[in-house]
Every structure is written in structure tokens, then in C-alpha cells.
């Protein structure tokens, strides 16, 4: 599957131009160490059952994730939800949490419920029934702490909810190898070594812009 094929499924009507349509980081997978290979391969395999999210919550998470990463590819979004599901279901800590904000599992679960309340207040429907523009408006409001006032926000601070969602979703999304390929990130690199790290130099296996994608300000030296 080439990136140029999948990118057309992207959100929004404008075509997104990518620099490296021919690069697939997975072509190099055989060169990676076995631990890294195992970690990345799991992102591409069928996902195990969820541990935390209910079906409805997972459905909501999918809609939210599509907005936050501006991407509609189901396999990638499913993986993002899976990552978040595992994190919330584990006993691993959350590194930091603002004093007064509930633990992340409560924040997310109650936060998803609150989305319905605020959607009803604004549009008379559940969040899941809103159109994309309306959903975006609700999420953008959360980010600024300016979504319509509902009592739930006293338990679930809206900005903290937004930050938690965006931070986990974005981290998972940019951990998917399809995205690495798209942005031309070299990805895992061991035991192979880099020799060409200076300006204008690339290893033979690194992402290269095709002629079509090279603008006037070419860096060829």
C-alpha cells in the first residue's frame, strides 16, 4: 500500500501534499533489532479485545481522534484507540496530574459522558450524532476551556480533558509506521548505523523526495 493511495482517504476536502510518497519505513524492518520489530509489528496486527472502553466510548474516541489527528484511516485510528485503552486499563501511573483533576480513567470516562451533555445544550443531540463541524466546535471549545457551561465541568475540567485526549491520541498516532513513512522519518535504526548525518546527506535507505516533490529550493548539494 503506497502512501499516495491512502492519503486520499484523509479528512477534509483539500488534498494534502506529502514529500515522500514512495517511502515505506517498513521496507527496512528486517534490519531492525528484534525487540523493536516486535513492538512495531504489534501495531499492524489485528488488535486484541478492549480492556477499558465500552463500545460506545470507543466509537466516541474514534470520532475525537479523527478530529485531533486529521486523519480518517480506520486501521490507524483503531490502533490509536487501542493504545489509549491499554493505558487506561493498566496500573501504570500518569507521570503528572493536576491537583484536583480526577485520575485519567475517571477524567476520560466522565469526560465522554459530559460531551453528550454539552452537545445537547448546544445542538440538542448527543455528540455522536453531531456533524463534523459541530463536533469540531465542541472540541475547540474544550481546548479553550470555553465549551458551554454544564455542572459536569466542575468534576471534569474541560481543558484537562482536552489535553489528556490530545496528548495520548497524538503520541499514538505518530507512533504508527504508516505515519513515519508519510513524514519521511527514518524510524528505528539499530543495529545499523548512520554515517551521513550532515546537511544534504542521506543514507541510501532514507526517505527521498521524488522529482515531482522537489521544489525550487532543492537541497541537493
Amino acid at each position: 500500500m503506497k502512501n499516495s493511495d491512502v492519503i486520499s482517504n484523509n479528512a477534509g476536502s483539500d488534498k494534502i501534499d506529502i514529500h515522500y510518497p514512495d517511502f515505506n519505513v517498513l521496507d527496512l524492518m528486517d534490519e531492525w533489532d528484534s525487540h523493536t520489530k516486535e513492538i512495531v509489528r504489534r501495531r499492524l496486527e489485528p488488535l486484541p479485545d478492549r480492556e477499558f472502553f465500552t463500545d460506545r466510548e470507543a466509537w466516541y474516541m474514534g470520532m475525537i481522534a479523527r478530529h485531533m489527528v486529521y486523519d480518517y484511516r480506520d486501521d490507524i485510528i483503531e490502533w490509536v484507540i487501542h493504545h489509549f485503552d491499554r493505558k487506561l486499563g493498566s496500573g501504570i501511573g500518569e507521570s503528572q496530574r493536576k491537583q484536583g483533576t480526577p485520575p485519567e480513567a475517571v477524567l476520560v470516562r466522565e469526560g465522554l459522558k459530559a460531551l453528550d451533555h454539552v452537545s445537547h445544550l448546544s445542538f440538542g443531540k448527543d455528540f455522536g450524532e453531531l456533524d463534523e463541524k459541530q463536533q469540531f466546535e465542541i472540541l475547540a471549545g474544550l481546548q479553550m476551556g470555553k465549551a458551554p457551561k454544564i455542572p459536569q465541568w466542575s468534576q471534569v475540567p474541560q481543558k484537562d480533558l482536552f489535553d489528556k485526549l490530545v496528548s495520548e491520541i497524538v503520541a499514538a498516532y505518530y507512533s504508527h509506521p504508516a505515519i513515519w513513512s508519510e513524514i519521511g522519518y527514518g524510524g528505528p535504526m539499530y543495529p545499523r548505523t548512520y554515517v551521513r548525518i550532515e546537511l544534504g546527506l542521506t543514507e541510501p535507505w532514507e526517505a527521498r523526495r521524488t522529482e515531482k516533490n522537489r521544489g525550487a529550493g532543492s537541497d541537493e548539494q
Binding site: D33, H83, Q96
Partner: peptide
């Protein structure tokens, strides 16, 4: 234990929840 992966290697950190203010 180590890997060439940002997400997986967050486990090198002290992830126990600290409350921040």
C-alpha cells in the same frame, strides 16, 4: 529492554503519578 521507539520507551521514566500545581 530498550527499543528504537518513543512510545514504548516511556517506561524508562518514573511514571508514578505526581500531583502538580
Amino acid at each position: 529492554d530498550f527499543a528504537s521507539d518513543e512510545l514504548a520507551m516511556q517506561n524508562l521514566a518514573w511514571n508514578d503519578t505526581r500531583l502538580v500545581a
